[in-house]
Design a protein around this nucleic acid. Structure first.
Lengths: 191, 191
DNA sequence: TAAGCCTACTCATTCAGTGAGTACCCGCCT
DNA sequence: AGGCGGGTACTCACTGAATGAGTAGGCTTA
């Protein structure tokens, strides 16, 4: 009813991403997110929370459900993306994050899905993220230089952030290298 | 009324820490936390949230208020720590955090207060934190080694965390060095 | 026949956090 | 004289996240 009132956030986008590959029903989604690998390694959702999100995403026009009767069993509610949902997901997955601290969850999720869209997408994402981080790092470095002699604590706080960012940049290089070669035949094609 | 039902968390402890130095009233607390340096660089609180926390901390016996009338003006409510509050703060400030991601806010806050308790406290805190991190790092490294060939994405996720931790360890060394010498005469003594 | 899992929710509640508002006093600027 | 800003101390209503527990029926396997 209230279509697209607000853009979905990280978790919601990842839900869209799971449906981009193929339609799933709620329980399957839940399972993917409670496993100890892939996306389940990055974040988890309790059932209640999942259904709340799913309800909202459907209500806002990003996904739609079709009830799939199967013999005597209770019917399954299969969710699939609408064109709007697909567009939202694709835009999200290609955009870098803006704060360093968003790498830990959001970027990791983007990377997961980008891999399924092929090497080109992965390379672009990594490069875009590298630039974002580099800018933020330069900015922080400039600030830190000003504080070095005067405010030791403030300087240490900035140094902490700088160290984290440097490590992220180095890790992006690792990603680029590790994913440069066909990322294992276990991926469901589309590489 | 309901004394010490639950332990305060990070933010609450930092509030205790500010009062450990000297009693303050709510408005002063708020100002310390909206400035762009020191603790205000690490986290902020809106007024409403601050008073909510303060109310709870008082109710649970960590701090107490004395109303300080001053002439024609409305009285100020000066907050100070109870022995319980002081003990809670001191225990908190000396304990390292257990998850890497808690360095970003909580450990930084601990470090801020530890500096005011003297070089000994700072050194101990840094060393304890170093050990915690090192253990977690070894653990992650072992896990990552197992995944390297089989699950490239899972491996990258762990590599990300490993990189962050290594950077934190390096940063702890920086702290140790930078704070080894009297941390500037601007500190209010006690160092 | 019971355990457990597939499937899909709902409900009540707790907790954090926010924007806005209320009150009153003081001193300064216009 | 009047208003603005800022010190001082809150309160209120609301949104939104998140969780634990509960409900419901069917199927499979030990």
């Amino acid at each position: 009813m209230s279509p697209m009132v607000k853009l979905p956030l990280t978790i919601e986008h990842a839900l869209l991403g799971l449906l981009y590959r193929r339609p799933l029903h709620g329980y399957q989604l839940h399972q993917e997110l409670t496993e100890a690998h892939d996306l389940g390694l990055v974040w988890r959702l309790k059932e209640a929370q999942l259904y709340r999100l799913l309800g909202r995403l459907e209500e806002e026009g990003y996904m739609e459900a079709t009830s799939e009767a199967q013999g005597t069993r209770p019917p399954r509610k299969v969710l699939s993306l609408t064109p709007t949902g697909e567009a939202a997901f694709l835009a999200w997955v290609r955009a870098p994050v803006h704060r360093g601290r968003e790498l830990r969850l959001e970027f990791l999720a983007k990377l997961y899905f980008a891999r399924q869209l092929g090497g080109e997408t992965v390379r672009n994402l990594i490069e875009a993220q590298r630039q974002e981080l580099q800018e933020a790092l330069d900015d922080l470095t400039r600030q830190a230089d000003r504080l070095r002699q005067t405010r030791i604590y403030d300087w240490l706080v900035l140094e902490f952030r700088i160290g984290q960012m440097r490590a992220m940049l180095a890790w992006l290089e690792t990603c680029a290298t590790a994913l440069a070669f066909p990322p294992s035949p276990s991926g469901r094609g589309s590489g």
